[in-house]
Simulated scan of single mutants.
Amino acid sequence: MSTSQTCQQYLSYECYGSMLFEYSDYAWWVSRDGVNQYYWPEADEGSRMCACGKNGNCNGTSTTCNCDNNDFQWRQDDGYLTKKDTLPVTQLNFGDVLGIEERAYFTLGKLECKGKASISTCAGLKESGNPTGYYEITPSSTVEPFSVYCDMDSYPGTGITEIDHDSSSGYIEYYDSSYNKNIQVDYDVSMDQIIAVMNVSQYCEQYIEWRCSRTGMLYNDKNWWLSRDGDKMNYWGGAAPGHDGYCGCGETGSCLPGSSYQYKCNCDYISKSDSTYRVDGGYLYDKSTLPVTGMTFSSDYYTYDYYYGYTYYYSKGYYKLGKLRCY
Rank of each mutant, 00 (worst) to 15 (best):
A27T: 13
N93F: 07
S24L: 02
S259T: 09
G159D: 11
S140R: 09
K84T: 13
G159S: 10
D286C: 09
E45H: 02
P291A: 08
R211A: 08
Q91P: 00
E45V: 07
M233R: 09
L324R: 10
L218F: 05
S128M: 11
S260H: 00
E136I: 12
Y261E: 07
D166T: 06
L81I: 13
Y155E: 15
L111D: 01
A43T: 09
I160D: 07
Q5F: 07
N182Q: 05
D229F: 12
G34I: 05
Y134M: 10
G99K: 08
V143I: 13
Y307H: 08
N182D: 09
T90D: 03
G294E: 03
L290Y: 09
T6F: 08
G109D: 15
R228Y: 03
L125S: 12
S201Q: 04
K126A: 14
G309V: 15
Y308T: 10
S154G: 00
Y308K: 11
Y26K: 02
E14A: 03
K84L: 13
N36E: 12
C113P: 00
C67P: 03
P156M: 11
K316Q: 13
M191E: 04
A43D: 04
T142R: 03
N36R: 13
A27L: 01
G17C: 06
D166W: 01
W74L: 10
G56T: 07
Q76G: 00
K116G: 02
G258I: 01
L92E: 03
A196Q: 03
Y307L: 12
S298F: 01
R214K: 15
T64F: 00
N182V: 12
P139G: 05
S298D: 04
H165I: 12
T121A: 10
T107G: 03
T252Y: 02
C150E: 07
D300M: 15
A104N: 09
R325C: 01
S12C: 04
I137M: 07
K54T: 10
S141R: 04
K272Q: 14
E162M: 13
A240L: 15
W210E: 02
S47D: 03
G317H: 06
K181N: 12
S227V: 09
T161L: 01
E251P: 00
K222P: 00
S147C: 05
W40Y: 11
Y13M: 05
C15K: 07
C247S: 08
L125N: 14
R103E: 07
N93R: 07
W74Q: 12
S271K: 02
N55L: 14
F21A: 00
S227Y: 07
K316D: 10
Q262P: 15
G317S: 09
K110H: 15
S190Y: 11
S4K: 08
N36Y: 08
V200H: 05
